[in-house]
Design a protein around this nucleic acid. Structure first.
Lengths: 211, 211
DNA sequence: AAGGTGATGACAGTTACTGACATCGGCATC
DNA sequence: GATGCCGATGTCAGTAACTGTCATCACCTT
């Protein structure tokens, strides 16, 4: 049997190709996926702080030790998909038209990523509710975004963007993503994430000019 | 005897006015200051991760329990002064000329705060070395800065700045502060923090215009 | 059939943090 | 100057997040 787990921010799809195992394996397959689901449920039910790793492991039918073999710590289970978003954005920056300015390159990348989230609004909202309910989780979210900003800056440097501009553009891009994302999950208004991102870039131009 | 502790980011000065106590108090005074110093030393010697709270408490001559009465957790001891920087900046934004644009207001505030740090470069460098050496500490630093960004945005709203602009300006200001601070502690070049901050705002105008 | 491998369990140990209660100098009040 | 409250600390037991180490055993390779 082969198990392929596709993980996106907070969401994982386990593609289990049941080659119809001769009989039964020693353990239920996809313990990692079960852990993710159990954690997501429990964090939603009781909140992150009042959920123990023991409870997650129990619901998933494994031991605590197995939890820590799959996830570095109790928070990381909610961010397992962050690497994928980063790859997506870095690639999009890399693939932007060669003559696009730095800000234009990240604008295109973020708008593209926004489209990805637009189909997952309810899920994103649930996840965001969990995260904002815990200081620890917000810390982890911030460091993931900071890493992302650094990766974007690197992608820009590989496009030939010089250094004060590359770092600054990366940081600004992430700030815009964060603000747009927050307003998108908080509002019930119709605007999509992509639209909000694009509007934020316009707003940035106005704000930055006002000196 | 009266003990006044003046705390700045990572640095605390205990002003002990020895009114020459009748005799000796029950414990050595300023346990909080001794804890800060012990922690700072040990984090520098062994790194944050390999320093236990027990070791800090022992060097400071108190019990572990006392550590946690003064500081919420092992990281917070390095950030006890963050509130002061925030008050400084918020006040500076509040006091900016009424006709200053949002970006101009935060620019003035940050440049002023930069001047404050300029006299503490070696100390800032030491502290920064400790922080970048630990993922946990970087997380804490990021959430402190995010809080600061929110406080700046609030200060701008009180100046009458409308909402997409206020939030965005706050975030951008903090991004600039962070980048400038990092380059200031990393470089040996002569430029002061304030100068770097001002240069970053100029850079921002150029970057943001390039759409 | 033999042996290697990978995912898991079992279990003991460390460390961060919390709650509850005891202690006792200093100070205000009487 | 005796009484009593207060605030900072100590003491101690407990919880929960992690880590290191070794055992187990279905599966795969040879």
């Amino acid at each position: 049997m082969s198990v392929t787990v596709i993980t996106l921010p907070g969401m994982s799809v386990a593609v289990i190709s049941h080659r119809y195992d001769s009989f039964m394996a020693r353990w239920e397959p996809d313990s990692r996926g079960r852990l993710e689901q159990a954690a997501f449920e429990l964090y939603g039910e009781r909140g992150f702080d009042r959920t123990t790793v023991a409870a997650i492991a129990e619901r998933a039918g494994v031991t605590e030790r197995t939890f820590f073999r799959h996830f570095a710590d109790k928070r990381e289970i909610l961010f397992a998909g962050a690497g994928m978003l980063q790859d997506l954005l870095v690639e999009a920056v890399h693939d932007a038209p060669p003559d696009a300015s730095p800000i234009e390159a990240v604008r295109l990348a973020l708008a593209g990523a926004g489209a990805f989230f637009d189909g997952r609004r309810e899920f994103s909202r649930h996840r965001q509710t969990i995260i904002v309910g815990s200081e620890e989780l917000r810390e982890r979210e911030l460091i993931k975004l900071a890493t992302l900003a650094a990766a974007l800056a690197d992608a820009l440097r590989r496009r030939g963007v010089a250094d004060p501009a590359a770092g600054l553009t990366g940081e600004v891009a992430i700030a815009i993503f964060r603000l747009s994302f927050e307003s998108w999950v908080a509002d019930d208004a119709a605007a999509t994430l992509s639209e909000r991102i694009i509007a934020s870039f316009d707003e940035l131009r106005v704000v930055a000019a006002g000196t």
